[in-house]
Design a protein around this nucleic acid. Sequence first.
DNA 1: TTTCATACTTGTAACGATTACAAAATTGTA
DNA 2: TACAATTTTGTAATCGTTACAAGTATGAAA
Lengths: 136, 136
Amino acid sequence: MIDFKELLKEHGIPPSLQRIKILEYLHDFNTHPTADVIYQALMNEMPTLSKTTVYNTLKAFAEKGVIVELSLFENEVRYEYNTTPHIHFKCIKCNIIYDISESFECLKNKEIEGHKVLEHHIYLKGICKNCRDSEE
Amino acid sequence: MIDFKELLKEHGIPPSLQRIKILEYLHDFNTHPTADVIYQALMNEMPTLSKTTVYNTLKAFAEKGVIVELSLFENEVRYEYNTTPHIHFKCIKCNIIYDISESFECLKNKEIEGHKVLEHHIYLKGICKNCRDSEE
DNA sequence: TTTCATACTTGTAACGATTACAAAATTGTA
DNA sequence: TACAATTTTGTAATCGTTACAAGTATGAAA
């Protein structure tokens, strides 16, 4: 059982109920939700929750490195709890986004054509294992 | 001198003046403009041009493979004329987006954790050659 | 060349994700 | 307990994009 209150403090974020709940959601569901998905999910529990709070909180979390902000291919920002290096795979059939632990650390701090690489984002598209299996 | 009219026909797109001008722009400036940037640029020449036309045209071009649609990290769609395999590097200082010809064809049709990879998109961030040089 | 159906373009209105902002509520601390 | 600072809230605004309907242009058939 993770102490999310402590986790937030360690990152210099004063833990409020809203912040704890949002972080808890990101941890428990470990998917790649949008701000709106999180907002909808927490509405039951916290009827007065404001969408603005969700947006502000997620942005703050990402800035402090508590979570990761993703811009995949649908023109909406998504967030995830998993901050370890990994890449993303999106299935074009079922639209599920998978984390792939394969890392490309070789790219880190590499120099390409004189440019210094600080971050790399890799996004794969294709057909996932499940969809391939059920195709047969 | 490229015959853009012919190029469009070859891709099954009836060439109108608007379409030719938009394609010409993408070719001549070979950057990664948004629909709005293209719209602003062509306004002088074609005062009656509609933004809807620009959006529709770009989407059609991308579907037929005349150009490439990019979703980089700013939550707006960008387009480019360069359809050859390459990756993108964005400088965090000057915000310029560079094409890097280094390709990762090794990823093509690869199988990762049972998933079949059909497309891969690689996006690097860092400090570009120019900005590094001028830092000294 | 004229006619006409089809396809293209235009402009406005609407949409969805996100942000700005000010007021209300909460918090930690003195 | 009191108060200043921070957080949350709700509404309105913004920005990129799309829907839609009306107007315009096009190209093939007569």
